[in-house]
Design a protein around this nucleic acid. Structure first.
Length: 904
RNA sequence: GCGGGGAUGGCGGAACGGUAGACGCGCAGGAUUUAGGAUCCUGUUUCCUCAAGGAAGUGGAGGUUCAAAUCCUCUUCCCCGCACCA
C-alpha cells in the first residue's frame, strides 16, 4: 500500500475545526487535579500588515512548550489578545482615511484567523482587546488608583513639537537629526503640563525583587542598569555671602577635599542662580545659557525622553556626534563662590552642560584630580587640581583608582575604597551632608496628545481652582496619601530613599478630580476627524461634547482631561485580565488571581526588556500594595527570543522587499512546516536569518514522516517489533526531546526528531507501540500531522487510503469523537526506559597521547571492567603500531567513554 | 568609555573537559523520469593518497590537563544594551 501524499491543506483545516469544536485547549479555573501552568507570550499590536514570522517563532515555540506541559498533566493557560491602541493605528487611519476602530477590528480578525490557521493552542475564550471599553475601563480604573495614592501627578515636561504640522510628536516620529519624519521640518521642544507616574518610588523594590525572580542574566542586568542605582553622599555647599546652598551628589565623598570648583547644569543655573549672579558676570552667563537653549535637537537620551526631563541638556549637539567630543567641555564662570564644607575654602561655581540636569541634583562638585570629566574641565578653565588619593600622575590624567587618602585633613591615612563607610558617617556627623542614593530611572510621562488611546479619566474644575479645592486633604498634599506612604515605609524600611529631587516639586493637584469609578469607562468618542488639534492639545480637545462635563466635587461645569494614555497602558496589566476577561465588576476575580498568578513563564522579545517589563512590574507591584493582586511580582520567569531577519540578513521591511508573509508559507507548505522550521532555524534566544531552502528541508521531513507512518509501522495483528537499534534511538530521542523542550532548545529537539526518522528509514519497520511514542513526541512540533497520524495508529484499519480519501466528506466532518483516544494532544507525555537509552555495543575511542587512533566495540555489560577494556584496546592494529613507538607510562579509561594511552 | 554576548566547513548551526562538524541547507555523482520538477541512493572540513593511513583544523598568542571549541591569562574583530549617570 502506498500512502497518498500528505495533503496539509485538508488535514490541517480539518483538525483545526475539530480542536475548536472539542475545546481541548481551554484552561480550567480552579482545577484541583492538575497543577496550573500560566504560559504567557507577548500579545501583538495587530498591524495592517498581518502576522510577522517573528510572532510565529515565539508563539509556535511556546505552543510546543505548552503542549508538552499539557501532556505532562499541567492545567495550562496559554492565552492571546490584542494591544490595539497606539500611534501606528492612528497614523494608518490618517493615511487611509478609514477610522482606526474599523481597521483595528479588521486587523484583529485577520490576526485571529492567522493564529487559527497556524493551529496555535490558545484558549480563545479568554481573548482580550485593549481598545474594548470593557477592557480599558480597568486601565482607567488603575490610573485613578494611582492618582488617589499620589503616584500620578502633573508636571511640566518637554514634548516634541513640529511647528509646521502644529502637532506634538512621539519620539519615534522625530528623526535622529531632530526633523519630523513625515514633513522633514525641524522640530522643537516645548514645555507642556503632562501626567506622570511616580515609578521612581518603586525603584528600590523593582531592583531588589529581581533577586526573587528567574530572569535570564541579560534581561536582569539590563533592568538593573536601567534603574541605575548608585549610592554616595549629597553634600551641601554654602554660597558665599548668601543663604543659598547648592547640594551636590557624589559617589566619591572621599574626594571632598579635592573639590576645587562646583558645576551646575544650565537649567539649574537658570532656575536657581540667575538672580544672584554678579552684574559683571551676568552678560556672559546669559549668553552661555542662550547658547544652550537655542539648539533644541533630539539629543537627549532615550530615558530622558521617556522619563521626562524638562529641557535639553546639551548646548552643542553638533559636537556630540563626533567621537571623543565629550572631552571638549564648554562652560562659564558664574562669578559666585561656594564654601567647601570640609576645608572652608571658597571655590568658584561654574555652569556647564556636561552636568546633566536630570541626574542627581543637577549640580556636582568638581574633583579634577580624580574624575576624567572634571579633569578636562579644569584643564580648559585653568582650575587647580588637588590630588587627594595617592596614585597616578595627576598632571596628565585623572586618577580614579584606589589608594591612600592624602591632603584631606582628618581623613589623611584612610584609604579608598576601604574606609568609604567611615567617611560617609563622618560627613553626616560633621553636618556636611548625608548618605544618599540616586537612580537613573525617572518618572514616567503618561500623557499623549493623540486620539487613539485610553482617555485619562480626570476632570479639571476651574471653580475648584478658584476656591483652592483639591481632591486631597491638606495633610495628604503635604505627604502624599498617608496610607500609601506608610505602606512604602514598611517595605522600604532600612532602604535609603531617593534624594529629594527638584523635578518632583511641581505636583499641584488643585482642581483635578478623578472621574467617579461608577462612571467608568470614559469612552473614547467616535470622531470623524482625529487629526492633531493644532494647539498641541489632544484631538479630543476639539470635541466639546466630550470635554464638557460636571465637576465630581462641586458640580460646576468642568473640563475633561483630553490627553490619552501611552500604548504601554493597556499592556501593563493584560495578563491579569486573561484570568477573568468578562468581569464587569472588578479587574479580575480574587480567587482566579490566587489560582493562576504569578505567570509561570513569560516569553517575548528583547525589545521589551526595559520598558514594558519594568512598567508592568511597577503597575503590578502597585496593585499588590493596594490589595488587588496576590503576589508582589507578576512573572516568575522570563526568557526572550531573537528576531527573525530577512534572507538578506536585514530586518524584514517592506522597503527592502524581504518580508515573509506567514500566510503564503502556510498555503504552500502548511502550518506544521512553518512551525517546525521556525523552531529549527537556530537557537531560540539568538537572531536568525530566514532561509527558504531550509524551510523546504522541513517540508521534506514532514512528507517523509507521513510516508513512514503509513508504510513502515508493524501491523498490530502481527505484533511487529522494532529493531533493537530503532528502539534505543526512540528512547534516546524521548529523553533528548523532553530535555530540550524544557530548556527551550527547540532547534536541537527538531534535529533529534529528524535523526529518529533517519534511523527508522534505515532500520525498516517500527512497532505500533513505538510508532505511537514517536507520534507523541512529535505532537508539540507538528500538531496537525501528529493528530492525523494518531488517528491512523489508533486503528490501522481506518488508516487506509479509503479513509484518507474521505477527507472533507460527511463521514469525516462529524469527527467529534473520531477515535477513542482522541486527541493526541490530551495523551500523556511518554516516558523513556533508561535501560533502552544505552546501546548494547558501545564504541569506545582509543587515543594515544590524546590523539584518536582507533575505536573498539565493547558489550554494554563489560564497560565496568576497566582491565578488560584496556586489554581489548591494545588489540587494535593501528593502536598497536602507535604503542610500539615508545613506552606506555599511563593508561586512562574514562568509564564508558574513552581510552587514552600516554606513550613516551 | 562601561556592561553583556559572540567568533566552529560553502551556509544556518551541533558538541556533560573525552571520536569536532549532529541535524538541515547547498554542492557533486548516480538511480528513476520523454523532459523538467519531485523522489531515492552515495559522497561532502582542508591537504597528501586508488586505498589503507597520515597531517592540519573551532578568530590570534600563551597556559592548565593524560585530554581543551569548552577552563585560565592576554589579544583582535563582530553584535547588542547603556553612555558626560558625578
Amino acid at each position: 500500500m502506498t500512502a497518498k501524499k500528505y495533503d496539509h491543506k485538508i488535514i490541517e483545516k480539518h483538525w483545526q475545526d475539530v480542536w475548536e469544536k472539542t475545546g481541548i485547549y481551554k484552561a480550567v479555573d480552579f482545577d484541583k487535579k492538575r497543577k496550573k501552568f500560566y504560559q504567557l507570550v507577548e500579545f501583538p499590536y495587530p498591524s495592517g500588515a498581518g502576522l510577522h514570522v517573528g510572532h510565529v517563532r515565539s508563539w509556535a515555540s511556546m505552543d510546543a512548550y505548552s503542549r508538552k506541559k499539557r501532556m505532562e498533566g499541567y492545567n495550562v493557560l496559554y492565552p492571546m489578545g490584542w494591544d490595539a491602541f497606539g500611534l501606528p493605528a492612528e497614523n494608518y487611519a490618517i493615511k487611509t482615511g478609514i477610522h482606526p476602530s474599523v481597521t483595528v477590528k479588521e486587523n484583529i480578525d485577520n490576526f485571529r484567523k492567522q493564529c487559527k490557521n497556524l493551529g496555535l493552542s490558545f484558549d480563545w475564550d479568554r481573548e482580550v482587546n485593549t481598545t474594548d471599553p470593557a477592557y480599558y475601563k480597568w486601565t482607567q480604573w488603575i490610573f485613578i488608583q494611582l492618582f488617589k495614592n499620589g503616584l500620578a501627578y502633573r508636571s511640566e515636561v518637554p514634548v516634541n513639537w513640529c511647528p509646521f504640522c502644529k502637532t506634538n510628536l512621539a519620539d519615534e516620529e522625530v528623526m535622529a537629526d531632530g526633523k519630523h519624519e513625515r514633513c522633514g521640518n525641524q522640530t522643537e521642544k516645548r514645555m507642556q503640563k503632562q501626567w506622570l507616574l511616580r515609578i521612581t518610588k518603586y525603584a528600590d523594590r523593582l531592583l531588589s525583587d529581581l533577586n526573587e525572580i528567574d530572569f535570564s542574566p541579560r534581561i536582569r542586568i539590563q533592568q538593573e542598569n536601567w534603574i541605575g542605582k548608585s549610592t554616595g553622599s549629597s553634600i551641601k555647599f554654602q554660597i558665599t555671602n548668601s543663604k543659598l546652598q547648592i547640594e551636590v551628589f557624589t559617589t566619591r565623598p572621599d574626594t571632598l577635599y579635592g573639590s576645587t570648583f562646583l558645576v551646575v547644569s544650565p537649567r539649574y543655573a537658570k532656575k536657581k542662580l540667575l538672580k544672584y549672579i554678579p552684574d559683571k558676570y551676568l552678560r556672559s552667563v546669559t549668553k552661555y545659557l542662550e547658547e544652550c537653549y537655542s539648539v533644541s535637537l533630539r539629543v537627549e537620551s532615550k530615558q530622558s525622553q521617556l522619563g521626562g526631563h524638562p529641557e535639553p541638556s546639551t548646548c552643542h549637539p553638533e559636537e556630540r556626534s563626533e567621537e571623543g567630543s565629550h572631552n571638549e567641555k564648554t562652560g562659564i564662570d558664574s562669578g559666585l563662590k561656594a564654601k567647601n564644607p570640609a576645608d572652608s575654602k571658597d571655590i568658584p561655581i561654574y555652569i556647564s552642560d556636561y552636568v546633566l540636569d536630570e541626574y542627581g541634583t543637577g549640580a556636582i562638585m568638581g574633583v579634577p584630580a580624580h574624575d576624567e570629566r572634571d579633569f578636562a574641565f579644569a584643564k580648559k578653565f585653568n582650575l587647580p587640581i588637588i590630588g587627594v588619593i595617592d596614585g597616578g600622575d595627576k598632571s596628565l590624567e585623572a586618577y580614579a583608582g584606589e589608594g591612600k587618602i592624602i591632603n584631606s585633613g582628618k581623613w589623611d591615612g584612610l584609604s579608598y575604597p576601604k574606609d568609604i563607610s567611615s567617611i560617609l558617617s563622618d560627613i553626616e556627623k560633621s553636618g556636611w551632608g548625608k548618605k544618599s542614593t540616586t537612580y537613573h530611572l525617572h518618572d514616567w510621562i503618561f500623557s499623549r496628545q493623540h486620539y487613539w488611546g485610553e482617555p485619562i479619566p480626570m476632570v479639571y474644575c476651574e471653580n475648584c481652582v478658584k476656591e483652592g479645592k483639591s481632591f486631597f486633604t491638606e495633610e495628604q498634599k503635604k505627604g502624599g496619601n498617608e496610607e500609601m506612604k506608610n505602606k512604602n515605609d514598611v517595605i522600604l524600611e532600612g532602604v535609603e530613599r531617593p534624594i529629594e529631587s527638584h523635578q518632583f516639586n511641581n505636583w499641584n493637584p488643585v482642581g483635578w478630580y478623578p472621574v467617579p469609578e461608577s462612571d467608568l469607562p470614559v469612552t473614547l468618542p467616535f470622531m470623524e476627524k482625529y487629526q492633531p488639534s493644532g494647539t498641541g492639545e489632544s484631538p479630543l480637545a476639539n470635541n466639546l461634547n466630550f470635554v464638557k462635563t460636571k465637576c465630581p466635587a462641586c458640580g460646576s461645569p468642568a473640563k475633561r482631561e483630553t490627553d490619552t494614555m501611552p500604548n504601554w497602558a493597556g499592556s501593563n496589566w493584560y495578563f491579569i485580565r486573561y484570568l477573568d476577561p468578562n468581569n464587569g465588576k472588578i479587574l479580575a476575580d480574587d480567587r482566579k488571581l490566587k489560582y493562576w498568578m504569578p505567570v509561570d513563564f513569560y516569553q517575548g522579545g528583547y525589545e521589551h526588556t526595559t520598558l514594558h517589563l519594568l512598567y508592568s512590574r511597577f503597575i503590578y507591584k502597585f496593585l499588590y500594595d493596594i490589595g488587588v493582586v496576590p503576589t508582589s511580582e507578576p512573572y516568575a520567569k522570563r526568557r526572550s527570543h531573537g528576531i527573525v531577519l530577512g534572507s538578506d540578513g536585514r530586518k524584514m521591511s517592506k522597503s527592502f522587499g524581504n518580508v515573509i508573509n506567514p500566510d503564503t508559507i502556510v498555503e504552500k507548505y502548511g502550518a506544521d512546516t512553518l512551525r517546525l522550521y521556525e523552531m529549527f532555524m537556530g537557537p531560540f534566544d539568538q537572531m536568525v536569518v530566514w532561509s527558504q531552502e531550509s524551510l523546504e528541508g522541513c517540508y521534506r521531513f514532514i512528507n517523509r514522516l507521513w510516508k513512514a507512518f503509513n508504510e513502515k509501522v508493524g501491523e498490530s495483528s502481527k505484533v511487529g517489533k522494532s529493531s533493537k537499534e530503532l528502539s534505543i534511538k526512540l528512547h534516546q530521542s524521548i529523553k533528548k526531546v523532553s530535555e530540550d523542550l524544557e530548556n527551550l532548545k527547540f532547534n536541537t529537539a527538531v534535529a533529534t526528531l529528524m535523526e529518529l526518522l533517519n534511523t527508522w528509514e534505515d532500520e525498516g519497520v517500527i512497532s505500533k507501540s513505538d510508532a505511537e511514542k514517536f507520534c507523541l513526541i512529535l505532537a508539540p512540533f507538528t500538531p496537525h500531522l501528529a493528530e492525523e497520524v494518531w488517528l491512523l495508529l489508533c486503528d490501522r484499519k481506518i488508516g487506509t487510503d479509503k479513509n484518507i480519501d474521505s477527507h472533507g466528506s460527511d463521514q469525516r466532518k462529524s469527527v467529534n469523537n473520531p477515535c477513542k483516544s482522541y486527541s493526541v494532544h490530551t495523551q500523556l507525555w511518554p516516558s523513556y526506559d533508561p535501560k533502552l537509552t544505552v546501546e548494547e555495543k558501545i564504541t569506545i575511542p582509543i587515543q594515544i597521547n590524546g590523539k584518536l587512533r582507533g575505536t573498539i566495540e565493547i558489550d554494554r555489560d563489560k564497560i565496568d571492567d576497566e582491565k578488560f577494556v584496556l586489554l581489548e584496546s591494545k588489540y587494535n592494529k593501528v593502536v598497536q603500531k602507535w604503542l610500539a613507538e615508545g613506552k606506555v607510562i599511563k593508561e586512562i579509561y574514562v568509564h564508558g567513554r574513552l581510552v587514552n594511552f600516554v606513550v613516551r
